[in-house]
Design a binder for these strands. Structure first.
Lengths: 186, 186
DNA sequence: CTTATAAGTGGACACCATGTCCGCATCACT
DNA sequence: AGTGATGCGGACATGGTGTCCACTTATAAG
């Protein structure tokens, strides 16, 4: 069980981190900044969160859980009941929303390889993999990660910030990927 | 023009960096390591290469130039002359080869956002964008980066190292993305 | 209420990578 | 050789990281 002061400090840390991630670039937010802003010592911070990434992951957790819940038990086309292609398109649309709403956070979650090591990626992977299997798509293992790649925070950030594309256009482009589901020849 | 000693040192640096990248993880190769191994001072190293990424980029440069040349002037289906979908598939196959042959290098080239800032990415982008335009695909701007996303080094590394997929299977999965080129409705 | 104990806290500390700076060496050209 | 300019190298300051340990506080038992 968790002690009362520990819980209080955890809340403080998350709140402080959220503010900091919102106001400046992820890599410019230092562990020291977070500790200072939260009013806790360095050791206290490191006790729970070994690095920036784990803090961002914790902050994203609830939003991701929400989407995960809707994927499993929500209404179609996001939830079960719709054809795989439509469910995939709905998933893309929902992910774009998630990325858009929490852009700074998701960028703070230490992009790069570590993205694949989070529990969330495993969930998205299982979901897409299941959709591919349901559609009878050949060789779904390799295709799954191919279809998830455009959702990498850095890709989305590039499209939004550098190219100036709108979420709607990005969603439309992603929707075209559903064409790969057809069981048709290699 | 470049002084003789400068050229000699540049060669030493690149050679040393190639060896180091080959023997340990990119983020564990420090600028100091490279300078030591190359037998040059810190200042000399920083004069040309401001960070690890730029060294890896320089090392990759020749291989990328080779592929770029073949895309522009090579035989079909890689070069001009074949239908866009076939050219895209050939491009994917060539990129997988490049990634496979220089895996450690390409991973050393500082993944994440910086990938988009390299000249090479701009080239791949222009190429794919042109193929989409030639195929009459609607909204090619957003789709271009979507189609290039699976070629991110970290994605490929994950598929190879963690999932244990073969280059052939990855290439096959990428080939399915050519289905998105059809001008057909959104 | 008091006391024991385990958990939690905070900040000082050592470490390491980064990037800069400047006196000196080396090159190219005359 | 002389000369100006370019390149070299390593010492240095800076800043972030992660650890460690003496102290404090919460909780539960007597």
């Amino acid at each position: 069980m968790e002690r009362a002061d520990a819980a209080r400090n955890r809340a403080r840390i998350l709140e402080a981190a959220a503010l900091l991630f919102a106001e400046k670039a992820p890599q410019d937010v230092t562990m020291d900044d977070i500790a200072k802003k939260a009013g806790v010592g360095r050791g206290t911070l490191y006790r729970r969160y070994p690095d920036r990434a784990s803090i961002a992951v914790a902050l994203l957790d609830e939003h991701e859980r929400d989407l995960q819940e809707r994927l499993i038990r929500g209404d179609p086309p996001l939830g079960p009941g719709a054809p795989p292609a439509e469910r995939l398109a709905a998933f893309y649309a929902a992910m774009v929303r998630l990325l858009e709403d929490h852009r700074h956070l998701v960028l703070g979650s230490e992009v790069g390889r570590s993205r694949f090591e989070t529990g969330a990626y495993g969930f998205w992977r299982a979901h897409v993999r299941a959709l591919l299997a349901a559609a009878g798509t050949p060789g779904p293992d390799a295709l799954t990660d191919v279809l998830l790649a455009p959702l990498a925070p850095e890709v989305y950030g590039y499209q939004r910030d550098v190219l100036g594309l709108t979420p709607a256009r990005i969603t439309a482009a992603l929707a075209r990927l559903t064409a790969t589901l057809a069981p048709g020849a290699t």
